[in-house]
């Protein structure tokens, strides 16, 4: 017997993403999916962001890693609620993994939920998690050519944070070229240079989040 299906291979993931999205809408939780290669500074960026915003918003974090609770522990140390997902070798988070841990949060009491994806510039870009915003972090030591080398990631994000700009004097990262490359593949995307370590540029990122939350809660 031959059975015609003609369905997207990610059908089950996309259904779970829709479920998550509805829940985030009902509870007015703004969800940001943060993606980058390993070591770009996602966790440090989130730590500094939580420190700066915790008096204004109630913040939660879902941490995705292959193994260990290390990142969730760093976030909990700041008083924010953090749930760790270990993918046990899996290269990305998918919407079902997110749906499975959402009951551990009181979403009604969270304004802002970060999902820190597994460090990887390829696979996480294919999986919708139900988030409202996708943000990519690209760090100065990686080089500005990553934008054109991993276009599937940078074509689908709304904001690229170029992190570790305190290292610009020592390395050959070309921010002007990075901006041009980004405009070429994704004209709508913003690019903000930041240093989570020194705090430079962080005010613009924090403003972007504040505006996002204000707009989301108005809807």
């Amino acid at each position: 017997m031959r059975i015609e299906l003609e369905v997207d291979v990610l059908t089950n993931n996309n259904r779970a993403a829709q479920f998550n999205r509805r829940l985030f809408e009902e509870t007015k939780t703004l969800v940001i999916n943060v993606m980058s290669s390993p070591g770009a500074g996602k966790t440090t960026l989130l730590e500094k962001t939580i420190e700066a915003l915790s008096s204004e918003f109630r913040i939660g974090v879902i941490e995705g890693d292959l193994a260990t609770e290390k990142d969730a522990e760093r976030i909990r140390a700041l008083g924010a609620q953090a749930i760790q997902i270990n993918t046990h070798g899996g290269c990305h988070l998918d919407a079902r993994m997110i749906a499975a841990v959402l009951p551990k949060f009181e979403l009604d009491e969270i304004d802002l939920l970060f999902i820190e994806n597994v460090g990887n510039l390829v696979c996480p870009s294919s999986y919708d998690l139900g988030q409202q915003h996708k943000v990519a972090v690209l760090s100065v030591p990686e080089g500005n050519d990553k934008i054109v080398k991993y276009p599937t990631m940078f074509m689908r994000t709304e904001l690229v944070l170029v992190n570790k700009i305190d290292l610009l004097p020592y390395l050959d990262f070309d921010i002007v070229q990075a901006k041009e490359d980004l405009i070429g593949i994704n004209p709508q995307s913003l690019l903000l240079p930041v240093s989570a370590k020194t705090g430079e540029g962080m005010d613009q990122w924090l403003r972007w989040i504040r505006e996002g939350i204000a707009q989301w809660q108005k809807q």
Binding site: L5, E6, V7, D8
Partner: peptide
């Protein structure tokens, strides 16, 4: 640069026997 993609991004399960 930046043409609109109309094919090539598909990944579908078409059928089985």
């Amino acid at each position: 640069l930046g043409g609109r993609m109309i094919a090539g991004e598909t990944f579908q399960l078409l059928a089985y026997e």
